[in-house]
Structure formats: structure tokens, C-alpha cells
Simulated assay, not measured.
Amino acid sequence: MTADLSSVLGDARILPVLTVPTAATAAPLADALAAGGARCAEVTFRTPDAVQVVKVMAAHGELTVGAGTVLSAEQAERAVEAGARFVVSPGLEDEVLEKCSELEVPVVPGIATATELMRALRAGVDTVKLFPAEPLGGTSMLRALAAPFPQARFVPTGGIRAAQLSGYFSHPAVVAVGGTWMATAGHLERGDYAEIRRLTAEAVVGSAA
């Protein structure tokens, strides 16, 4: 249906999920993530400046930037125009899938049930966001869904912390793991880019272990 997510992310397996309040934060945040070894990032469409944040971070040059919390075709289009290389949604919305297919960008819809996964696969999408991963049961839920759908690939996101990475990455169906702990609202409010860099580096090392 669209380009494959793995072809866009390359060997990047840590996906920082970012809710960035102002575009002024975007450049130093991109610097901190890249310095920590991140090669991709998801900018959520939860703030008024999200489009501008995508533009600034996409222009950084060292990060493959995607748009997250995309709920409509219009948001998907604006995200791609701003430089997003992939689109992530918290749920399975047909108009988002169709728009991403039209734009020829990878789309990662959120799923929480076997029925939703079957719908995604039927629509030609084989990489999905298991969301919210930890509240759904974490790696136990991942294994339960992966067993009857060996063609499916997963990007678990939601409630995951650094200590849980090895459990997710031990499953061959996991393409990448998304998380907010590397750059929280508190980090951004304080301008604590050194801590963002440290947490990102820790996560990148954990993804390779």
C-alpha cells in the first residue's frame, strides 16, 4: 500500500515520541536527540506548533522525522508537506490510510485488538503501532497478537520505559519501540537537553543489546 517503514527508518530502532510545545524548542531538541544517537523521531500533532516543529526538525539533517497522533487526512497532508517521512496514528482510521497511500508515505496505524490488526492487514498495512502497549499487557500482548499473524510487524508505544526495552526487542516482530521518556514535557520546560541526550543514548544502547 505504501513505502515500508523499515526502508525509511533504516536500522533505527528507538523512536522518541515528542510533544513539543513551541517551535523554539525544536532545534535544540533535535540536536540533543542526534547527539544521543537517535536517527528518527515522531512529532505528535498535539500542539499548535506541531507543523513548524516538524519543519525545523526535518531540516536538521540527522533525523528522519515523522508525524504522530495524526487523526485526519488533512493532518497527514500538512505533516508530509512540512517534511514528515512517515505518519503514525493512535488508531485505525481509513481516511488517514488512504491519504498516506496517495502521498506514498509509510503509515503506522494504532491497534489494540486482533480485529483491528486484521483490518490493517486487509488494508495492506503490515506494520502497526501496538498502543497503548503497556496498559494492554506489554510483551505478553505483543506475543499473543504476533503468534496468529506472523506477517505483522509492530512498533509498541505507550507506557514503555527504558528498563522494558530488552523484552520488546527480544521479539523478532518488533521493528522499533516508541517512547516519551527520553524527552518529556518536564525536560522541555526546563531546557534539560543534557538529560535528553543522556536518556536517548541509554535507549539507543539498550536497543542494540
Rank of each mutant, 00 (worst) to 15 (best):
T2A: 08
T2P: 09
D4H: 12
L9S: 03
L9H: 00
G10Q: 11
G10K: 12
D11E: 15
D11C: 12
D11S: 15
A12W: 07
A12S: 14
R13Y: 05
L15E: 03
P16F: 12
L18P: 07
T19V: 15
T19L: 12
V20Y: 01
V20T: 01
A24M: 03
A24I: 09
A27M: 08
P28T: 12
L29G: 05
G36A: 08
G37T: 01
A41P: 06
A41N: 03
E42R: 02
K55C: 05
M57D: 00
V70Q: 07
V70K: 03
E74Q: 15
Q75I: 11
Q75R: 08
R78D: 13
V80R: 03
A82L: 08
A84G: 02
A84M: 11
R85C: 05
S89A: 15
P90L: 03
L92F: 13
E93P: 00
E98L: 15
L103P: 04
E104C: 08
V105S: 06
G110M: 11
I111A: 02
T115Q: 12
E116V: 00
M118S: 15
R122F: 06
G124N: 04
T127K: 05
P132F: 13
E134V: 13
E134H: 08
L136I: 13
G137W: 13
T139K: 02
M141C: 13
M141S: 11
M141T: 14
R143M: 12
A144I: 07
A144W: 10
A146Y: 11
A147E: 14
P148T: 14
Q151E: 15
R153K: 14
F154A: 09
P156I: 05
G158Q: 00
G158S: 10
I160N: 04
R161V: 13
Q164A: 13
L165G: 02
G167Y: 03
G167H: 06
G167N: 03
F169N: 00
H171C: 14
V174G: 04
V175H: 10
A176D: 02
M182I: 14
A185H: 09
A185K: 14
H187Y: 08
L188V: 14
E189L: 12
R190F: 08
G191H: 06
G191W: 13
A194W: 05
I196W: 06
I196D: 04
R197N: 02
R197F: 03
R197E: 15
R198N: 09
R198W: 06
G206A: 15
G206M: 12
G206V: 06
A208N: 10
A208C: 08
